[in-house]
Structure formats: structure tokens, C-alpha cells
Design a protein around this nucleic acid. Structure first.
Length: 626
RNA sequence: GGGGACGUAGCUCAGUUUGGUUAGAGCGCUGCCCUGUCACGGCAGAGGUCGCGGGUUCGAGCCCCGUCGUCCCCGCCA
């Protein structure tokens, strides 16, 4: 059909904002045709923009030309409607729509653009086929749910930025093209045209730059920073992601906690959720014992030590390693599972941890009735709860350090706890409908989204943050036969533990901390090393020579020698925070143009090959295995 | 690199257990009709290399082998 020009037409209102009080107002609305209902001489158009939907009425008698165009118009055409707001007749009011009391009596319709038939309609819920959603991302993001997610993201970011500014932090940008420091995650490299054979790296985080900003005396820095890591993707991991990154001078750990608690509270408030502060804390060892993970989900019951329910002889019969932890956990209200259901769950258990599980309580109760009863009692299980025991498997001996350090969990112990913790969270996901522990969060998210006033919804049960502290400074690398840092090498040890750096590395705790919420790692930070002598000691204890340290971090070590104040900081994943508050199951729902699990952009079709000329300029030759 | 789930019309799915005529439904789409719908309604119609390749068989959407893609998990992510 022939299209109309916009001309001098100026939009007066957004579709979703009109109310009964606007009756009589002359308006010009512009947007996309959400749905069309053709009744012959009367046509209804649902016109949609980012604010919502208004019904346009095209009457053949009142507006013959507009009605004629309305017959040609199709869903997702872009149109402008000129007309008058009028109250609907009582029996024509639609209580399901915010604008359901009014409609626009059109006097003119301009068809600004037509459209190819989209593979799915933005008027409906998300389709299952995510491949198609991502390829036609522009159509997908027209859906109200996506519009809401990105508005939410904007508001959370704005609130955090504003709050950090109020807390005395300056936002300072750090380079995207920077130096590769081959530690930790794999770097994305960018070839230098000017310097043949040399490469920039995209930042995994602004870590070194923000520490230098402390040396520069900025005292409190933050940045909503894009970070890049060339590692495999997950539901909560993308190649590029955004961190709320901050660093402060002269802080104690508690000062960092206080800053984070305040800006998170502000961010949550922007999403309509009241987040109580301060957050609870737990040590790394305790978190492993109680939840089998360093990112515990406190909405469900944790692990219980059930060693006391068994005698050594019974453990022998059950072929359970009596020297390793024996824990039980329960998934509430799952009820009794059939043999088939239980077997379907078995692939969810990670066998590589040297642990085994007992999920057949009927059978256990036949052989060991008292133990079975005791386990359920210790775990606080009701009859409706599904209980599983996880313990070390002496028949499945994995490669792990046998060294046992006083006061620290051994690698084997950690493995058993981790196997239990992982099984717990997988089963919790699977039986979410039955235990209902996640529904609380969904309900609070829904209530916060639909709240009418500026009041906040209580988020205490729905969002459960927890600080993790007292991480070990070093891990024993069995293959290399030496102690390696569990964190980046600028993490400070506890002042009280510094004397043991060389003599007893196992006992040294790092002054670093993680923030977890609802089973997600939200962020991680530390107090940094600010003294050259301590830095040298750490490098020495790691077996890193002066030359090696200089080659890797030279410019930073130089900077450390020019009056470095004690400093520390943290970085929180903004995408994950938004994901939690949007009630989304993965990061792609809150990132406009995300990559797939195979690390490609289906819409832009990236990455791609480039021309020979481009490669030549960059002094690069591609060697592909045939 | 490893494990699991899925792949049938534009979309959502059934059909695969037990191989058997021309592969179905709903939504969407096209045309016609309709002045109060809002998931409008009515009538008619179009639309499929059952992801791809190979094999078994008289015969494959269904069985076997391989391969590709999407998702989830492990490894990895200092």
C-alpha cells in the first residue's frame, strides 16, 4: 500500500498513558499496530508504543479515508493516529487494560511504514525458540516484558550511579584497549596495526587501573564498566558483561561492605524492592559445610552433618568413607519419588567428586531403620520432604590432595560438600514448583513491578544476600606440587597471618570477600596489597621471580612504589543484579544484544572472517586446521 | 574437551512406544463477509526436503550411525 509522510505531525501523548481524565483531548499517537479487529465498517486498532496500548477506532462514517487505510493495515505497521480521546460506553470498558476506559476516535490515520511478516508477534509472550528471538531481536524487544526489563535496568543503573556519587565516589573511565596480563580468564586480543605482531587486550576488569587511581589520590572511584572474558558461556555468564566496579582508599573491609549495602539497597529500591541491610556473613569454610558452595541460596534448607546417625560398622556395610563428611539435605514438599523419577535425577549428580549418594530411603530404612529415622530427624525433614544423603565413596578414589591442614577443609572434604551442594541446587531447580521456595521471589518481583505507588515491597525473604569471608589465600596445586594463589596476586593476606606466608601458607587467609544472593555470585573484592615488601613476599611465596613479576605487571609495580595508600574495593555484576530483579532465568533477558551459548551474535552474525586486506594491515595470517 | 535435553508448517505442539495409504491441530498468514471488538467472529484457502547426510528395510518423521544447531550443566571463569 502507499505510505504516508510524517509531515508536520507531532506526537502529543504516549499510548499507554491516556486515562478517563483525558476525555475530550485531541491527541496524536504514534506506534506499532499491536492487533487489528475488523468489523466491516468499524475497525479497531490496538496501537502500541513503549508505554503501552491505546485502542484506535476507525469508523467508516466518521473517517472514511482512515477507515479505508485501516483495512490495509497489518500488525506491526507503523502508524500515526490523529483523533479525540473519548470515554467508552460502560459495557465497552476493558478492565484488563490501563487505558481500557477510553479509546481514540480517529479523524486521520497515517501509515508511516509497512513491515515484512515477522516470524513471531510482539503482541504475544516470548516464543520458545530462542534462536529466532535472537535473530529477530528488534522484534523480540518490542514485547512489553523486554521493554520493562530494559527500563528496569536503566532505573537500577541510574540509582546505583546516583547513590555512589552521593557516597563520594567519582566515576572515571578506564581503557578498553589495554595490556594483556595472562592470568585468570582468557583475554580478548586486538591486534595493533601500527605495531606489527603486538596486541592490546580488552579488560577482564579495570582492576589494575582502579588501583592506580587510588595511588593517584582519587580516594573513591567507581565505574559502570564493560568487562570481557573469553571463556565458555552460561546462563549467568556472557563474553562481555557490565560490572559496578569500585575502589576506595584507607578502607577497612567493613567500609566496603557498607558502601555496597547502601548502593544495592538504592538499586533494589529503584526496582521497588526493600532490601534490608546489613547483609549476613559467613566464612568460606562454613559456607561449604552448610551449603556445599561458595554462592549459597539461603531460600532453601542447607546441608546437615548426619555422621552421628551411623556407627562405623554401618558405614562399612554401606561402603561410605567414614573419614569424609556425611551430609544430608532435604527438598521440601517433593513427596516420595518413584524409582524411575529418582533414576532420572541421577545424571544431575557430579560423579567426578569422589562422592556417592543415597536417595532410596525406603531401602535404607529396611536395613538401618534407626539411622534412617535419625537422618531425617537431624535434617529436620517432614514426611513430605525428599531427603538425600551424600558421602565420600571409598570405591571411587579421585586425585586430590591428601594433606590435611588443621582448621581448613581438605580438598576431599570440599569435593564431598560440593557434590552435595551441586545436587541440592540442581534438584531445587527441578522441583521448584513443589517446594515453592523460589516462588516467593517471583511474587515479590511481580508485586514490585505492578505496584501503583512509590512504596516498596518487602524483599527480605525473596532476596537473600550474604557476604562470604575468610577465603584461603592459597590453594595447593597437586599437579604442580606447589601453592598457588586462590585469587589475583594483589589480594592482601590478613595482617595477623602475614608472619606465616612462607612457613605455613595453608593457614593464611586472604582479606577478600564475595557477595552471593539467591545462589548467584553477585560480586567479589578484596583489600589490596599496598606495600612493596608484602608484594615481594607474595610473589616469592608463589615462586614468581622479580624478572617475571616485572615482565607481567611492571607498570603497576612501578606505580606501587610511588606512595600507595592502603586500598580495597569490589566489583558487582550489574547484569546479574538486573536479572534477579527482573525475575529472569538468564542474562540474555536483560542484555539487549547477547551472544548464544556457542559465543555468537545471531542477529549481527558475528564473528565472521575478514578480508585479506584487513588481515594484511594487521600483519596477521590465519592458520586453519583443515 | 565431557554429560544431558531438544530439533515436525512462520510460531506452539501432537504423531516416534509397536516402521505401513495423501504427516495433523491451534495460533499466525491470504481472500471474502461483518458497526462494539479487545486472544473479535463467520466462510474459504495457501503453507512441510519431519535440522542435514548416510545406512537398515518391500517401505523410515518413527530404527541405526554420523553431523549441525539451540538450551542447561561439568571443565574453564585469578
Amino acid at each position: 500500500m502507499s505510505l504516508d509522510f510524517l509531515g508536520n505531525l507531532q506526537r502529543t501523548d504516549l499510548c499507554g498513558t491516556l486515562r478517563a481524565s483525558d476525555a475530550g483531548k485531541h491527541v496524536v499517537l504514534m506506534g506499532w499496530v499491536n492487533r487489528r479487529r475488523d468489523h466491516g465498517n468499524l475497525i479497531f486498532l490496538d496501537l502500541r508504543d513503549r508505554s503501552g496500548i491505546s485502542q484506535i477506532v476507525l469508523d467508516a462514517e466518521l473517517c472514511p479515508e482512515g477507515h479505508r487505510k485501516g483495512e490495509q493495515v497489518r500488525p506491526e505497521y507503523v502508524v500515526a493516529a490523529v483523533g479525540k480521546v473519548r470515554l467508552r460506553a460502560k459495557d465497552a470498558i476493558n478492565p484488563k487494560m490501563p487505558t481500557g476506559e477510553i479509546e481514540i476516535e480517529a479523524t486521520e490515520l497515517r501509515v508511516l511504514n509497512d513491515t515484512r511478516l515477522a516470524p513471531f508477534s510482539p503482541a504475544e509472550d516470548a516464543i520458545q525458540n530462542e534462536e529466532v528471538r535472537l535473530k529477530y531481536r528488534y522484534v523480540d524487544m518490542r514485547r512489553p516484558e523486554m521493554q520493562r526489563n530494559f527500563k528496569l535496568r536503566h532505573e537500577i543503573t541510574l540509582a546505583i550511579r546516583d547513590n555512589l556519587s552521593q557516597q563520594g565516589f567519582l566515576e572515571i573511565e578506564t581503557p578498553i584497549l589495554t595490556k594483556s596480563t595472562p592470568e585468570g580468564a582468557r583475554d580478548f586480543l586486538v591486534p595493533s596495526r601500527v605495531h606489527a605482531g603486538e596486541f592490546f587486550a580488552l579488560p577482564q576488569s579495570p582492576q589494575i587501573f582502579k588501583q592506580i587511581l587510588m595511588i593517584s589520590g582519587f580516594d573513591r572511584y567507581f565505574q559502570i564498566a564493560r568487562c570481557f572474558r573469553d571463556e565458555d558461556l552460561r546462563a549467568d555468564r556472557q563474553l562481555e558483561f557490565t560490572q559496578v566496579d569500585l575502589e576506595m582508599s584507607f578502607p577497612r573491609r567493613e567500609d566496603v561492605f557498607g558502601v555496597v549495602e547502601k548502593f544495592l539497597q538504592a538499586g533494589f529500591a529503584a526496582a521497588g524492592v526493600e532490601l534490608p541491610i546489613p547483609f549476613p556473613r559467613i566464612s568460606y569454610d562454613e559456607s561449604m559445610r552448610q551449603y556445599g558452595t561458595d554462592k549459597p541460596d539461603l531460600r532453601l534448607p542447607g546441608l546437615t552433618d548426619v555422621r552421628a546417625a551411623f556407627t562405623d560398622e554401618q558405614l562399612g556395610t554401606l561402603q561410605i568413607d567414614s573419614a569424609l563428611p556425611i551430609v544430608a539435605f532435604r527438598i521440601p514438599n517433593v513427596g516420595e519419588l518413584s524409582r524411575k523419577e529418582r533414576e532420572d535425577n541421577h545424571p544431575l549428580f557430579d560423579l567426578k567428586k569422589g562422592a556417592k549418594f543415597i536417595d532410596d530411603f525406603k531401602r535404607l530404612a529396611k536395613g538401618f531403620p534407626e539411622s534412617a529415622a535419625k537422618v531425617r530427624e537431624l535434617a529436620g525433614a517432614s514426611d513430605a520432604d525428599f531427603v538425600i544423603i551424600v558421602a565420600g565413596d571409598p570405591a571411587h578414589h579421585i586425585k586430590a590432595s591428601d594433606t590435611k591442614f588443621p582448621g581448613r577443609l581438605s580438598e576431599r572434604e570440599i569435593n564431598v560438600y560440593a557434590a552435595a551442594g551441586n545436587f541440592r541446587s540442581e534438584l531445587a531447580k527441578k522441583y521448584a514448583d513443589r517446594h515453592g521456595a523460589f516462588k516467593v521471589t517471583e511474587e515479590v518481583v511481580a508485586a514490585a513491578q505492578s505496584r501503583a505507588d512509590a512504596g516498596l515491597v518487602d524483599g527480605a525473604k525473596a532476596f537473600q544476600p550474604i557476604w562470604l569471608t575468610d577465603f584461603p589465600m592459597f590453594e595447593y596445586d597437586l599437579a604442580a606440587g606447589k601453592w598457588v594463589p586462590a585469587h589475583h596476586p594483589f589480594t592482601a593476606p590478613y595482617e595477623a597471618d602475614m608472619a606465616n606466608l612462607v612457613s605455613d601458607p595453608a593457614s593464611v587467609r586472604a582479606d577478600c570477600y564475595d557477595l552471593a544472593m539467591n545462589g548467584l555470585e553477585l560480586g567479589s573484592g578484596s583489600i589490596r596489597i599496598h606495600r612493596k615488601d608484602v608484594q615481594q613476599q607474595i610473589f616469592a611465596s608463589l615462586g614468581i621471580s622479580d624478572e617475571e613479576a616485572r615482565a607481567r605487571f611492571g607498570f603497576f609495580l612501578d606505580a606501587l612504589e610511588y606512595g600507595t595508600p592502603p586500598h580495597g574495593g569490589i566489583a558487582l555484576g550489574l547484569d546479574r543484579i538486573v536479572m534477579l530483579l527482573a525475575g529472569a532465568a538468564n542474562l540474555r533477558e536483560v542484555i539487549a544484544f547477547p551472544k548464544t551459548a556457542k559465543a555468537i551474535d545471531l542477529m549481527a552474525d558475528a564473528p565472521t572472517t575478514v578480508t585479506e586486506q584487513q588481515l594484511k594491515e594487521l600483519h596477521i595470517r590465519v592458520a586453519l586446521k583443515s
